[in-house]
Each structure stands twice: as C-alpha cells, then as structure tokens.
C-alpha cells in the first residue's frame, strides 16, 4: 500500500502542500465520527499504538488517545515518570524495547528538539511527533489550519498573525510552515526577546506591536507565555506583558475587521489573552480542540496506510 506521508510525521517543514491538504481533507469525514453516538470506526483495528510522553501533556495526549480509540486501535500510554525512563534508560532503548513487543506506531512528546526524528530513524514503527522541544508540533498546526479553513472557507491569502513567545514555540514553527505552504500570509508579533534570529528569512512579516498585528491580520494565533520566561529575563513581568502584548477586548475593538482568535492552550488568562477574548464570539479555541481529534485520526489513518477515502477497506489488511 502506498504511503502518501512516508513512514513518519515529524514536522510540516519537509512536507508538500499536497501532503498537508491530504491530511486536512482526510480529517473532514473523521469529524463526523466524533458526532455519532457510537464514536468508532474499524480503520485501525488490530493496530497497536504507544503514546510515549516524556513531557507532561493533557490536551494532546488525550486527543491522540481519543483519535486512536475511535479508530479502534489498541493503545498504551507511557509517561516518563513511573517508567524505566526515570531509571535512566535512554530514549532509543525505551523505544526498541517497546518495538520488541510488536507495536505499529509511536506517538512521541519530548522536551528536546529533534527527539522525534532521532526515534524515527532508529525504529521501524511509524512515529508521530506530538511536539519535540522548540522544533515542531505538526498535529497542532494541522488542527489550527483545519479550524481556520472551517471558519474562512479558504487558507490562501489569509493573514494569520502568530503572537507571543515564537522563540520557544514549536506550535509557531509548525504553523509558519503549514500556513506558508498553503498560501497564507504569516505575521509574527512579540517582544523582540522572544522572536528568533532570522525569522523573517522564512518568509514571515515581523509585526513589532500587538496593535500592528491586530490591524494587519484576519486571525490571531495567540501563544502561551510560559511563566519561566520571566525568570530567564526575556520579559520583565507578566503584568507588563499583558499591558504591552496582551490580546484584550479593548485592542480588538479597534480592529478594522472581526478577528478570529486561536490559542493552542493551555491559556494564561490575563497574560497573553484576556478572558473576554478567549470566551468571546470570535474565539475558536474549543473548535480547535474538537478538530484536534479529527486531524489526529487522519494522520494515524494515513500513516497506517489508509487511502484518503476513509470509507475504503480498513487498514486491517496490513499496510507494510
């Protein structure tokens, strides 16, 4: 069976626009599965998937787990605490031992950039990157793209401003690649201390002030400001961050058009985003979460060798 995505999903940087669109289009019919009373299709029946989370995660891990279960896969969750990792076992040994139990896929979350690729190069199972350090978080970007497409009916020509701590954000990197490849315009906005060197050479517009981003954009993707950034001296205080860079309803009221607001979560209410914005009429933060399950179902299905038409015979007949 063909593998339209290759063996693994590590990031969006290396993918073509066709591959990204395939994942989004494959997610569309999967949305409906989660709306049924019996939320299950047999697409990955008999497949074993390990969720290997070396970093705390609620939303992403549960979203993957739902996606796996609704595709009828068998799943195991491994967290770094309470496993052999906490006894000093290396990443590759952990994965090889899991593989020796005959698994089909690994979904990996790790605090270090490159960890997913490192793993993918060393095991035969499909590897899905659920976030590696500051590198990429492809399924998050895919669900952001899907949510934007739902709202606007298109991505081409759309102006999306990514606001906040771009320097430390894997969500920002994956979104930049995905949006640019699908023809959107991308702005980045944040304190210069939190914008990486040379970001403009990727083809994005640097918007110095949050007011500029609000003036320019059709949608804002507001990044979480990690609280430890204060201690490392990137920003003086959360209070000042909110006053200078916070997405507030006062600022949005002056926008020339209604802005769609995305946030990958978890939110710091009152820091990067105010509650009345997060809970307001233009927020798509919860639809993002809903779409997350559909996008992850699509990714797992395609990696397992599924054909884009999800009604086609399930991948119970082996895909390797």
């Amino acid at each position: 069976m063909t593998r339209p995505l290759g063996k693994d999903l590590i990031g969006l940087e290396s993918l073509t626009s066709e591959q990204i669109l395939l994942m989004l289009d494959t997610a569309e019919p999967f949305k409906e599965v989660s709306e049924r009373s019996i939320k299950k299709v047999p697409a990955l029946r008999g497949k074993t998937i390990v969720n290997l989370f070396f970093e705390p995660s609620t939303r992403t891990r549960i979203s993957f787990e739902f996606a796996e279960k609704r595709l009828s896969a068998d799943t195991v969750n491994v967290a770094s605490t309470g496993s052999s990792v906490s006894k000093g076992e290396t990443l590759v040994d952990t994965a090889r031992n899991l593989e020796a139990m005959r698994i089909d896929m690994v979904v990996v979350r790790h605090s270090m950039s490159g960890a997913a690729q490192f793993l993918a190069e060393r095991i035969r199972s499909n590897v899905v990157n659920a976030g590696d350090g500051k590198h990429e978080h492809p399924t998050q970007a895919l669900l952001d793209l899907l949510t934007l497409r739902d709202r606007f009916g298109r991505l081409e020509g759309l102006k999306v401003a990514i606001c906040g701590d771009v320097l430390h954000s894997r969500v920002a990197r994956s979104n930049i690649w995905g949006l640019l490849k699908l023809g959107a315009q991308v702005g980045v906005c944040g304190p210069p201390t939190l914008l990486p060197r040379g970001i403009e050479t990727l083809g994005v517009t640097v918007l110095p002030r949050i007011e500029d981003a609000i003036e320019w954009a059709d949608a804002l993707n507001v990044l979480r400001l990690q609280l430890e950034r204060m201690q490392s001296g990137f920003v003086p205080s959360l209070r000042e961050y909110n006053r200078v860079f916070g997405v507030t309803s006062e600022r949005l009221d002056r926008a020339p058009r209604d802005l769609v607001i995305l946030h990958p979560g978890p939110m710091n209410r009152g820091v990067e985003i105010d509650s009345d914005v997060a809970d307001g009429p233009h927020s798509v933060i919860l639809p993002q979460v809903t779409n997350g399950v559909a996008v992850r179902m699509a990714v797992l299905y395609l990696l397992a060798g599924g054909a884009p038409d999800w009604a086609a015979p399930p991948a119970g007949e082996d895909s390797r």
Binding site: S113, G114, G133, R197, G198, I199, T201, L202
Partner: peptide, 15 residues
Amino acid sequence: HEGIISTRMGLQGIP
C-alpha cells in the same frame, strides 16, 4: 550556532 538553522530546528543558539 544561533542563526536561521537554529531557528528552523528549534535548537537554542550560541551567538
């Protein structure tokens, strides 16, 4: 090295 490659790879750079 801190530069465009470190930005792409999400690795912290040394200027």
